[in-house]
Design a protein around this nucleic acid. Structure first.
Lengths: 291, 291
DNA sequence: CGTGCCAGGTGCCGT
DNA sequence: ACGGCACTTGGCACG
């Protein structure tokens, strides 16, 4: 690829409505050709609509900065007056409307809905309908500041080191982390109100019922565990030992814990990860980089 | 504004690293000047970093499509290998990393964190640190496909028609919706396990304890209400009438409801909204457009 | 600041 | 489909 080919760039300036439409056609990948880089700056609504339809068809990632109103109707309803927002449409048919602040989108539609863009009376209407539960999101676009359509090359795997699941796996791999001689009989054991995380016996033959929390254990988990206990019983002459495994106890939960006869065993995420590291050689690669 | 001024466009083509850097400087607002439209297409990492710093400083909305790795460490930890993602940084200091699919971001940081962009060894590192709880998100950017910085003009108010709150307001405005002659004594009344949504008396002087749900009422709400009842009692010679107000009863919850002696009163969101419409003239404007 | 609770919660997995 | 539950849940209101 020679130096000259880098300059194979088309810039066409057109007058679209009241705005300026700059069409930068560039490709870093195909420099010798005149491949269009799908970025529109202040396009007319009709140009934007055309590009949206192409992007939706190709299931590309659409990123639009536009002035619009947003209506939602479905499980409930919402209304948002006109203003400039960031609109994202993904290849799997989900849509996000973000304002200039806040972590969460002001409106959205989960993946799997039908999205269409149509011109309507001098405005561009973007509609996203979710079949079940039936709900629809409607954007009436008055002005598009920016519209880009991208294809994201992304095959990497996402690895999350978190959660009860890793703590549970650590306990299963090394039951001694609970106490010397602890033996696991079952996990995710079904009882009417829900599932017992870990279920086992101590060296005395007592039944140990464990509820795991990755966060400081508070009142809800105590109630949950007591609820489970109603449906469980120890072997004749043995005790039922309810136990909460968590990194810590929540502020005011200590008295309730003592009163209800529930034991507490500290297990931090770090320790759980260390145990997994020790036992699961195959996981070492994925785990070594964090912490 | 004459036609010629629309062409006041600067396009500079530079060779940045292995990529092409097209710098389209345009403004639809200030066409006579050479105001920069902050959109970079395949900039060098140094160009991107400079633009990011400027955008962060000005608390603008940053939208970047880039190939990067993502590390998270805090309450838990995560790792995501290299791939192309959509990165959003908002003015309030939150950051979202979106992949090409899925409603939710693969990684993020809520608002209020400190974000910095720095060059590092041939890569661009974007770091977002949240002070409390202490957690950090680190993006190592290898290649930037697109970077735009926007200022969103958006003063509209968001109106959500939803939730228990509207149902509660409807009941408070028109207690008859529960039953003829029902009188409200209190709402959000504190009991040890939580709060009673609505608390009142019927025409017989019996105490009515209402729990509101906007979704079909299932087992959890029954348990919740029974929990509250333990801490409440009717006047001498009167009854305690626990009642669930919801659009419907969940599938298998009917028997449990009957068994526990809890009454059910249907109230849909639509009806609640209608009541609010009738009573709150000032709200009519906001409510009239939906449904 | 923790504690409780709602959310258009979402997502995952099970019957 | 409904049920139970975790989530880097986020968000708000309140003691």
């Amino acid at each position: 690829m020679d130096r000259a080919s880098y300059h194979s760039v088309i810039v066409s300036v057109s007058l679209a409505g009241k705005g300026v439409s700059i069409y930068c056609s560039v490709s870093a990948l195909n420099l010798s050709g005149l491949t269009k880089l799908p970025v529109l700056i202040s396009p007319s609504l009709e140009e934007a609509r055309r590009e949206l339809v192409i992007g939706l068809e190709a299931r590309r990632l659409l990123v639009m900065v536009a002035s619009c109103t947003v209506e939602y109707s479905g499980r409930t309803g919402s209304h948002l007056g006109e203003g400039e927002r960031l609109v994202i449409v993904k290849g799997d048919g989900c849509i996000l409307v973000h304002r200039g602040r806040d972590y969460q989108p002001v409106n959205w539609q989960p993946s799997g809905c039908i999205i269409q863009a149509q011109a309507s009376n001098g405005t561009l209407v973007l509609k996203a309908v979710r079949p079940s539960p039936l709900e629809s999101l409607t954007l009436v676009v008055k002005d598009v500041q920016f519209l880009g359509t991208f294809l994201l090359q992304d095959d990497a795997e996402f690895v999350l080191h978190a959660s009860e699941e890793e703590m549970q796996r650590a306990i299963i791999l090394q039951p001694d982390v609970i106490e010397q001689g602890f033996k696991i009989l079952d996990f995710e054991k079904k009882v009417p109100p829900g599932f017992v995380d870990v279920y086992g016996v101590d060296t005395e033959g007592n039944t140990v019922v464990i509820e795991i929390k990755k966060d400081p254990a508070g009142f809800p988990v105590i109630k949950q565990l007591l609820e489970y206990l109603k449906y469980l019983q120890a072997p004749p002459g043995k005790k039922l030992r309810p136990m909460i495994v968590a990194p810590s106890i929540a502020k005011g939960a200590q008295p309730a814990l003592a009163k209800s006869g529930i034991e507490f065993k500290q297990l931090t995420l770090q320790k759980a990860v260390a145990i997994l590291q020790k036992y699961a050689r195959s996981d070492q690669q994925a785990l070594k980089s964090w912490l």
